[in-house]
Design a protein around this nucleic acid. Structure first.
Lengths: 339, 339
DNA sequence: CTGAAAGCGCTAACAC
DNA sequence: GTGTTAGCGCTTTCAG
């Protein structure tokens, strides 16, 4: 063992007066090595406190056993659930997970993705930033044939694996439910329309109106970034219309909550005066009062699926792509029950 | 550029008929290289789509520019906030963050930590698993002098940097507050006492009782794992005592919420009949009804501090250790206001 | 069953 | 300013 640094296979080899290759093979349980030498080697390795240097092995093998995950914000229940699910699967398959957040900024996302490439991740799982508009950094992965899986927020023009929920059906179901509850003028807080998920939710909403013969009123749709603040502003705006809505389908739970708080402060009763439905099933939507009707998105499961898929791609080098659409589930709670 | 694989500095060198070292230096902006050659080299690098291989560079430099973070569960607001804060700081300083979750299992934690060691992380930030009982895997880091920072759940017998909140003061403040509100028999749902945080919270609780001359009643303390289910069971148990409590200081918000739901179902009013206080300030504690009084723990800030600290240690090789105690803040909400 | 030797891609003494 | 050379620690042909 060298002075202060880590013991290597060479130190073990020297100790036993054998070659480093034998040590390497023994530690990797290569069948060509006799059981006896294996045991001797492992014993010395233990006594020396030897730990394989994954960096070196990765360099040699041109494989990092690492999966990159990029989310807009780690600190959001849906995303942390996806990460949690992906980490679980990755860990069991012997992969390390490196994580970064884009903070919904295109520039940071580009940086992160390039740095993950430089770190030679074996695959990349990503939900793109709201702001993102150029996708060269992602096409790079496709070009180099490094597995790339989108989840939730996917880029339509990039052909690769995608795991999404059925946002269209979600939007449709929410709206149908509100109609069934007797709401007549249903508003919608929509997210940025460059993201498919928000576009699809809105389309589902419009389709439900159409199917029920309800005329579509453009002014009832407010497109914003779906932050808490935007939710308040948008609700305020909708309620100030000459014909304000009697129900609001909010693009996510964040805005549903902020809308509810705003309305409550104005003395408007939920669900009697105005019905509210959110999207995502954040943990608080169940416990807030009134509890928020919403669409459940199986984050943990999406993460698991994404990791399973990418590992399969990494290990089998398949060249076909699939889009997995997970079903959405409408969870009806107090905020939208009128009957 | 070699057939199908990534271009290397040698490819660039060959293209320009110069040496690889010059290329390496140029790309690292070494001042010894003339501006002209630098520009030429960078141009070729661009046109070739060259991306430095961080793995190789890391191996050579014996530095991975990677920080490991281990939490019990990624998917918990407090922990994902810490990760988010740490990632933010690490990213800006040029570090990559690798993340794993122990699921509160000692065995998995050991595995993860050893694998992070093998991956040669430059430092490790960890909040230990509830179940953890042996700490050899962590002592390894100390022995090898790899920076180690505990946050939230620290191991007392390992001398290293720690970032914690003042749990004792938190427990004290909660209890004092309940006493001030006129509650007479205050119960406590405590977490596993091998973890300092829960021990300290309990000690703060006991100290407040003592200071106020309230006799300590062992039967009012229930030690459990602070899960939702445990919270229900513990509350049920406390309320079935001959002299049930009129207030419960719950070791975290999870149990506070489940206790509240249990009590509500039994027709017991909060805060009139029983006062409830939690710990951690989970997002839902503010919006649930009644809103839960709790102790704010600055997760994001803890993550930032942990990352700053570990980066300083990595880069300066300091040998002194500090324990940063972040102040706790009592947030009084509806669940404990009687007056 | 084991060893010798080359090389993954990059960096850094040391030379000139 | 630039090149030569050696080597980070591991794996893997090829030889025996």
């Amino acid at each position: 063992m060298n002075k202060n640094s880590e013991p290597t296979i060479h130190d073990i080899a020297r100790e036993l007066k054998i070659s480093a290759s034998t040590v390497s093979r023994a530690l990797n349980d290569n069948p060509r090595i006799s059981l006896k030498t294996k045991e001797k080697i492992k014993a010395i390795a233990d006594s020396l406190g030897y730990r394989p240097n994954t960096l070196a092995s990765n360099l040699r093998n041109k494989k990092s056993n690492t999966i990159g995950i990029v989310v807009p914000l780690i600190n959001r229940y849906f995303f942390s659930s996806v990460i949690s699910g992906a980490e679980d699967v990755a860990y069991k398959a012997g992969y390390t997970v490196v994580i970064s957040q884009s903070n919904d900024l295109a520039a940071k996302e580009i940086n992160i993705v390039q740095s993950m490439f430089s770190n030679r991740v074996d695959g990349l799982i990503i939900s793109i930033a709201m702001q993102a508009s150029t996708f060269e950094h992602l096409k790079l992965f496709r070009k180099k044939n490094i597995p790339l899986v989108f989840f939730d927020r996917a880029v339509p023009e990039i052909e690769t694996d995608k795991i999404v929920v059925d946002d269209f059906a979600g939007g449709f179901r929410v709206t149908q439910h509100l109609i069934d509850q007797g709401y007549k003028r249903i508003g919608h807080l929509a997210g940025p329309q460059n993201l498919m998920i928000y576009l699809n939710r809105k389309n589902g909403y419009m389709e439900a109106l159409r199917k029920n013969g309800i005329p579509f009123d453009e002014s009832l749709i407010n497109i914003n970034r779906l932050t808490s603040e935007d939710g308040v502003a948008a609700t305020q705006y909708l309620m100030s219309l000459p014909h304000p809505p009697d129900a609001i389908f909010c693009g996510n739970d964040t805005t549903a909550l902020s809308a509810m708080i705003y309305l409550r402060d104005k003395g408007i009763r939920i669900p009697e005066d105005v019905g509210i439905v959110g999207f995502s099933n954040e943990p608080y939507s169940k416990v807030v009062s009134p509890s928020i009707s919403t669409i459940a998105q199986p984050g943990f499961e999406m993460g698991q699926k994404a990791a399973e898929l990418i590992i399969r791609k990494i290990e089998n080098n398949e060249r076909t792509y699939q889009t997995i659409v997970l079903p959405t589930e409408l969870i009806v709670r107090e905020s939208s029950i009128r009957k």
